[in-house]
C-alpha cells in the first residue's frame, strides 16, 4: 500500500485537489471506501459548496459525520450555514456592546460582512480546523475539496492569518504598554459609555482582545503544523488528460511547494483506451497521447496513477472499492 495514505504517528489527512469535473469526488470516495475496508476508520468530508459526495455513495449526507458502512463516515459541509451561524453569534454579542453606535447601522454591517471578500475561504478553513481538532477520532480524514483555485487559497490562509495575527498582537501590545504607563501615573482609568463603566484593560491577562488574538494565532499555527507535516498530511492531485487540467495542476504544484505542503500523488483520471479508434476521436486521442507524454515529463519522479474511463459512471460501494484498490495499492 502507498504509505502516504496511511496514518503514521497520528491521524492522516489527505486532500484531493484538481480542476472542476476531473473526478475528485469519485476518486476520493474510492480511496476512502478502500481504506475503510482495510480496517482504517475513515472520514470523508466534502468541502465543495456544490456537493455531490452523497450522490457518489448514493446516500444522503449532512453536516455531521454519518456512518455509510463499517469504518466509513461521510459528511458534506454546508458553508452557508457555517457563515450564517457565525454572523448570528456575532450579532448577538455586538448588539449588546455597541448600542451607542449610531453611525454604523449594525444590521447593514452584518449584511455586508456575509458578503465580505474571503469569508467563504475563512469559513472553510475554520471548518477544516474544527474537523482536525477532533481528528483523533479517526485514522484517516479525506477532504474532497472545491476546484483548485479556492482550495489553494484556503491552504494558503493559515500562513496569511498567522502573519496578520502576529502584526495585530504587536500593535495590541504597544497599546497595552501605553495604557499601563498612563495607569501607573494616573491610577486606574475608567471608560464610561452609555452610563456603563468599564475598566480600561492595561495588562495582557485582562485584555480580551489580546487573548482572542493569541488564541487565534495558536489555532492557526496548529493547522499550519498539521498541513505542512509530511507524516500527517498528503495531497493527491486529480487530473484528466487535457491540456488545461495539466496547466492548472502544474501551477497548483508550484503553489503547494511554496506553501511547503507536500504533493504526493498524481491521479490521471478518465484516460481513454480504445482498441479501435473511431476517426471522430482521432484528434482527441492524439491530444491525450501528447498530454500523457507531457505529464510523465513534467511530473518526473512523482507517483503517477493512470485510471481509464469506465463505461459506466463509477457509483456505489463495490465499484468505488475496486477503483480505490487501484489507487491505494502500489504495483511494481
Amino acid at each position: 500500500m502507498r504509505d502516504y495514505f496511511l496514518p503514521k504517528n497520528a491521524f492522516r489527512t489527505i486532500f484531493f485537489i484538481g480542476k472542476g469535473g476531473v473526478g475528485k469526488t469519485t476518486t476520493s470516495a474510492a480511496v476512502a471506501t478502500y481504506l475503510s475496508t482495510k480496517g482504517y476508520k475513515t472520514l470523508i468530508v466534502s468541502l465543495d459548496p456544490a456537493h455531490n459526495l452523497g450522490d457518489v455513495f448514493m446516500v444522503e449526507l449532512g453536516d455531521k459525520p454519518k456512518k455509510i458502512v463499517e469504518n466509513l463516515y461521510g459528511m458534506e459541509l454546508d458553508m452557508e450555514k457555517v457563515i450564517r451561524s457565525y454572523l448570528k453569534h456575532l450579532e448577538n454579542s455586538m448588539k449588546y456592546m455597541y448600542r451607542y453606535l449610531t453611525v454604523i447601522n449594525l444590521e447593514k454591517y452584518f449584511e455586508v460582512l456575509s458578503y465580505s471578500p474571503g469569508i467563504e475561504e475563512y469559513a472553510t478553513l475554520e471548518a477544516i480546523r474544527d474537523i482536525l481538532k477532533e481528528g483523533d477520532k479517526w485514522d484517516i480524514i479525506i477532504f474532497d475539496t472545491p476546484p483548485t483555485g479556492l482550495t489553494l487559497r484556503v491552504l494558503a490562509l493559515p500562513k496569511i492569518a498567522k502573519i496578520w495575527s502576529e502584526k495585530l498582537i504587536e500593535i495590541r501590545r504597544k497599546i497595552l504598554d501605553k495604557r499601563l504607563t498612563v495607569e501607573k501615573i494616573q491610577g486606574e482609568r475608567k471608560f464610561v459609555i452609555e452610563g456603563k463603566e468599564y475598566k480600561l484593560p492595561s495588562r495582557e491577562e485582562e485584555d480580551e482582545v489580546l487573548k482572542e488574538l493569541l488564541n487565534y494565532k495558536d489555532e492557526v499555527e496548529e493547522v499550519l503544523t498539521i498541513i505542512t507535516d509530511r507524516d500527517r498530511t498528503s495531497v493527491a492531485a486529480v487530473i484528466t488528460p487535457e491540456m488545461l487540467a495539466l496547466y492548472e495542476t502544474e501551477r497548483a504544484k508550484d503553489s503547494l511547494f511554496k506553501l511547503n505542503i507536500p504533493l504526493n500523488l498524481l491521479v490521471v483520471n478518465k484516460v481513454i483506451n480504445l482498441n479501435v479508434e473511431p476517426p471522430q476521436l482521432k484528434v482527441r486521442m492524439e491530444t491525450q497521447k501528447e498530454v500523457l507524454r507531457k505529464i510523465s515529463e513534467k511530473f518526473k519522479g512523482m507517483d503517477i496513477i493512470y485510471l481509464r474511463t469506465y463505461e459506466k459512471e463509477p457509483r456505489g460501494l463495490d465499484m468505488l472499492n475496486t477503483i480505490g484498490e487501484l489507487i491505494v495499492i502500489q504495483r511494481r
Binding site: 457565525y86 454572523l87 456575532l90 454579542s93 455586538m94 456592546m97 455597541y98 451607542y100 453606535l101 455586508v112 460582512l113 465580505s116 471578500p117 474571503g118 469569508i119 475563512y122 469559513a123 478553513l125 475554520e126 490562509l157 496569511i160 492569518a161 496578520w164 495575527s165 495585530l168 471608560f191 459609555i193 468599564y198 480600561l200 480580551e208 482582545v209 482572542e212 488574538l213 487565534y216
Partner: peptide, 25 residues
C-alpha cells in the same frame, strides 16, 4: 474592508469585535 485596505481574516475580526467598544469609540 470599509475603507478599501486589505482586512485581516474575517473570522478573527468577528471574534475581536465584541471587545472593541473603546477602540471603535
Amino acid at each position: 474592508s470599509f475603507i478599501g485596505i486589505p482586512s485581516p481574516p474575517t473570522t478573527l475580526v468577528m471574534r475581536i469585535m465584541p471587545h472593541m467598544v473603546r477602540e471603535i469609540y
